[in-house]
Amino acid sequence: MLVEVSNLVKRYKDVLAVDNVNLSIAEGEIFGLLGPNGAGKTTTINAITGLSKADSGEIKIFGKNFKDSELAIKRELGIVPQDLAIFEDLTAEENLCYFGKLYGLSRSLLKERVSEALEFTGLLDKRKQYPKKFSGGMKRRLNIACAIVHRPKLIIMDEPTVGIDPQSRNHILQSIRQLNEMGSTIIYTSHYMEEVEELCSQIVIMDHGRVIAKGTKEELKAMVTVDERIVMELSSLNFTLVDNIKQLQGVKDSYVNGSELTVISKKRSKSLGRIIDCVAETGSEILSLNVEKPTLEGVFLTLTGRTLRD
């Protein structure tokens, strides 16, 4: 395991920010830490990177602990902080040189890596510009670039996409995948379940400082029995059809909502085919059909009774 966190506890006065968290992150993963604001993600990250001291628990990175091998660990670590941490009065390129040099790269290697990181984050043509003139998305990308100049083995990203346009977001998600393919292990925290679902091979869901679920996204979804919702728009609707569908095997409920027919069916009951046959028998035409699958949002909802964005 690249990172092993055992029984981590961190308390801020009367807030138990992290409550006995255990994580193990294997090399080569994109590891997702999902949870609503205040779940304790940043606090966990800060303990891993040595930014704050845990009250108790043990953290091993690359098999070493911070006390004995602080500098060795730090050399292989890249951190994208939740808050932008860039100098507005230095150009994009100077920011990268400044922070990159702290990792002891030689002048020529630094130059090469800085261009690489700029290229990678799509900022190469903006390298001589000051970040104060950047859009939110560009600043976020620079924030990421600053953390990867030294090609770290482990990259920790704390909500790297908050408050940006979809285009920048896609660019960032793409680069994260690419970084991973190039050999970096990535810890990715977010409160956007779509991102984590799309990106991460292993996911931990946190709430109120505790891990409430962990596994691959398939495993997580399997943990909860959430009904499937099938929504159809039909050319004609009648009550016999609604009643007939209700009688079908695996269907729990069926009702009309305007021109739409909604069917609630048990998960994996394979009832869709039977429902379509039933509609076809009445001679009605299906104009549109949508099956809403269980999502991580649904998983969170089932586990906590709240939505992620509450």
Binding site: G50, K74, I79, L102, Y103
Partner: peptide
């Protein structure tokens, strides 16, 4: 927050 980058660097 730039202090953070110095804090995490070797």
């Amino acid at each position: 927050k730039t202090l953070l980058r110095f804090d995490v660097s070797p």
